[in-house]
Design a protein around this nucleic acid. Structure first.
Length: 693
DNA sequence: CTAGGGTTAG
């Protein structure tokens, strides 16, 4: 082997050999080569003579996550004499994620004669932050002060980071404010702290101050700022950050490209993100993942799945995050065929399935109308891996399919097995109760939150309002909102508005809408809902006013899309789609179905057409609702005996709902419809939601 | 020729 050539020349002075080996170790990228180099260094005795190479070997082993070997190397040296090696070993633990080992090692250092120095503290502090051990961190902080390293920039920056990492941002700020000298790194650390705490505005203010003091953003700072702007979803500021990166020659650092891409994604600028992605010369997994996420966040799930196919044939290595994103894309899409394909991919490629991923997969099956597979997965979870979120996923799964009783059973079982329900558990349980009209049970659960000391957040209130609202208890719903005082947010008012729609209460609806337009002036859905309520009461004037209002604000009603999967192919239908050779048959089928249903007593519910038009036109518009087209297409193409599964991006209208019920009886078909909120299982003329949605 | 801030997902 090439390495032997070097060792033969042992008469070379040690520093020359040291230099050669140093290069070898640094460039070595497999564990087996490292092991070979290591054994050569040992047998030739070179390692004994070079502290520097020993350190290199330790760090390199740790980069392959072989901490035990690294430790073994450390133990076989005369480390007592070298604080450098102590620090190196500590660094090996701290920088490869073995933070508890790092802390243990640090206490060993303290018990030895070793005195910590300015190199030691950053590693220790990093490990404290990583293990969220704030008490430990504070102890180290006092040690820093006692040993006189309190004004070392490196140590101070690490302190800022430690407090921020433990979530105590005020203490981080205290350390930061006391610093006598600051550089870009500690400014960035402090800015990042605010960004991570979702205080993007504060982060940007601090950036201003940093620039006023004459510091220039480097690429790391740019990455953080891009994330902060992404949080705000402010496309204008986004473009400014992008421009800065380009002007300062930072746009070739892959992390900068990635964070700018993710930033545009969060600002809804899909085309810009796509352009950046396509033009980027260097891409890593994160670049791909960011683009996938961009599609998912902007409701383009099938584009995400297409990109995933492209990714498979590229040379990047997919990781667990990739799979997580793709699974969530499939959850949105509701495609059973894609779900099976992705799960298969995960198994084939031996992707590590941890709790998070498993729950995501269970959720995906539930949202693809395959609750059975989700249940099966739950049952197969090894006992030691069963956690609260798995229970939560199961409860939510039952809930969204309208099985409120089963959801409650699971909730009870979970408590029996001594799992502590958390805030997500209660959201799932309450929404399950709400979907099934289990008002009393829901009230009980709501009260139970205090027993488990789970704080009630607006989400829980929204479930309760929804539950009261659907059950027609509009006053109870309204009273509950009043109890919340200023904490009432758009979710709760939105739930009330929906309830007003179901029960035709225009007056209360106006109260809710007033609050909503104030809280979320850009949210299209609330305008549409309110205008539908006016349309229900035939108040065409107000409908017109709202339309105009929306137009002035540049808001457009999102297009209703219904998806149906036939023979492993996904078909989409929009309401009022243009007639072409493909859709003509489908339209004709709808007409025939409607004629047949009318003989069975179907009376079209014209209130579901929200335009002030002649009744004759209304019939046409009603029949051309996307979900009816999809249903007709399903009747024509899905084998009798198989259920028809339709996925809709908005709420189902009541006319379509009654048509679906009738079809399930007259044609003897099982139909499953997923809308934005829940599943409807139609069978024998009935729906699992008990007409309650 | 030891050290500090960084991108996706949850």
């Amino acid at each position: 082997m090439i390495l032997w050539g070097l060792t033969l020349r042992t008469n070379n002075p040690i520093n020359k050999i040291e230099h050669h080996y140093d290069k070898f170790i640094q460039s070595c990228n497999t564990l087996s080569i490292l092991t070979q180099i290591h054994s050569i260094l040992t047998t030739t005795g070179i390692i004994k003579q070079s502290v520097h190479l020993t350190a290199r070997i330790i760090i390199k082993y740790s980069s392959f996550l072989h901490l035990q070997t690294a430790r073994h190397v450390f133990d076989s040296t005369d480390h007592e004499t070298s604080s450098f090696l102590w620090n190196t070993m500590l660094r090996a633990y701290a920088n490869s994620g073995f933070s508890s080992d790092a802390l243990e090692f640090y206490s060993l250092m303290r018990r030895s004669d070793f005195t910590p120095n300015n190199y030691t503290f950053p590693f220790v502090l990093k490990s404290c932050a990583a293990s969220l051990l704030i008490t430990h961190g504070k102890l180290v902080h006092s040690e820093v002060l006692r040993t006189g390293f309190g004004s070392d920039v490196y140590v101070e920056a690490a302190l800022v980071d430690m407090y921020a990492g433990c979530g105590i941002i005020d203490d981080a700020r205290k350390v930061f404010d006391k610093m006598s000298k600051r550089d870009v790194v500690c400014w960035t650390a402090m800015i990042t702290a605010y960004e991570q705490a979702e205080r993007a505005e504060t982060a940007l203010c601090l950036l201003d101050q940093m620039q006023q003091e004459g510091f220039v953003m480097d690429w790391v700072a740019t990455v953080t700022i891009a994330s902060a702007v992404g949080q705000l979803g402010d496309a204008k500021r986004g473009r400014a950050v992008h421009g800065y990166a380009v002007r300062h020659g930072l746009f070739y650092e892959v992390p900068v490209v990635n964070s700018v891409l993710a930033m545009y994604a969060k600002c809804g600028e899909v085309e810009v993100a796509e352009m950046i992605f396509e033009r980027s010369e260097e891409r890593n997994v994160i670049t791909w993942n960011s683009m996938l996420t961009c599609y998912v966040q902007n409701g383009l799930a099938s584009e995400a799945l297409d990109l995933f196919e492209r990714m498979k044939t590229s040379d990047v290595n997919l990781n667990q995050v990739t799979v997580l994103i793709v699974v969530s894309a499939c959850s949105y899409l509701g495609s059973q065929q894609q779900a099976a394909k992705i799960h298969d991919f995960i198994v084939q490629n031996k992707v590590d399935i941890n709790q998070t991923l498993r729950n995501a997969i269970m959720d995906m099956y539930a949202k693809c109308a395959d609750l059975d597979t989700a249940l099966k997965m739950f049952k197969e979870i090894p006992v030691n891996q069963l956690d609260v979120s798995a229970w939560n996923t199961l409860i939510a799964g039952y809930g969204m399919h309208g099985y409120g009783k089963q959801a409650l059973n699971v909730f009870n079982q979970m408590k029996d097995e001594n799992f502590q329900p958390n805030h997500i558990t209660f959201t799932s349980v309450l929404s399950a109760c709400s979907h099934s009209g289990l008002v009393n049970e829901g009230k009980k659960c709501f009260a139970e939150m205090e027993i488990f000391s789970v704080a009630k957040d607006p989400k829980h209130y929204a479930c309760m309002v929804d539950m009261y609202g659907r059950a027609g208890l509009l006053n109870d719903a309204y009273e509950l909102i009043k109890d919340m005082k200023s904490h009432a947010n758009d979710e709760v008012w939105g739930a009330l508005l929906l309830a007003c729609k179901i029960h035709g209460n225009t007056n209360l609806a106006e109260v809710a809408a007033d609050n909503l337009f104030h809280l979320e002036p850009q949210h299209t859905g609330y305008y549409v809902l309110m205008s539908n309520i006016y349309a229900d009461s035939r108040n065409w004037q107000e409908v017109g006013n709202l339309r105009r209002d929306m137009k002035n604000k540049g808001l457009r009603k999102p297009a209703a899309v219904s998806l149906i999967e036939v023979n492993n192919e996904l078909y989409g239908f929009r309401t009022g789609e243009d007639i072409d050779s493909f859709t003509r048959n489908v339209y004709q089928k709808v007409e025939r179905v409607v004629v047949e249903l009318k003989m069975e007593g179907y009376v079209p519910d014209l209130s579901c057409v929200f335009h002030d038009v002649e009744d004759e036109d209304k019939h046409g518009m009603l029949n051309y609702h996307g979900e009816k087209l999809a249903l007709a297409f399903g009747l024509m193409n899905v084998d009798a005996g198989l259920p028809i599964f339709i996925n809709k991006n908005l709420r189902v209208c009541s006319d379509c709902h009654s048509v679906f019920k009738l079809v399930s009886r007259v044609y003897g078909r099982k139909i499953v419809v997923r809308d934005v909120n829940r599943f409807h299982h139609f069978e024998d003329g009935l729906c699992s939601c008990n007409d309650y949605w």
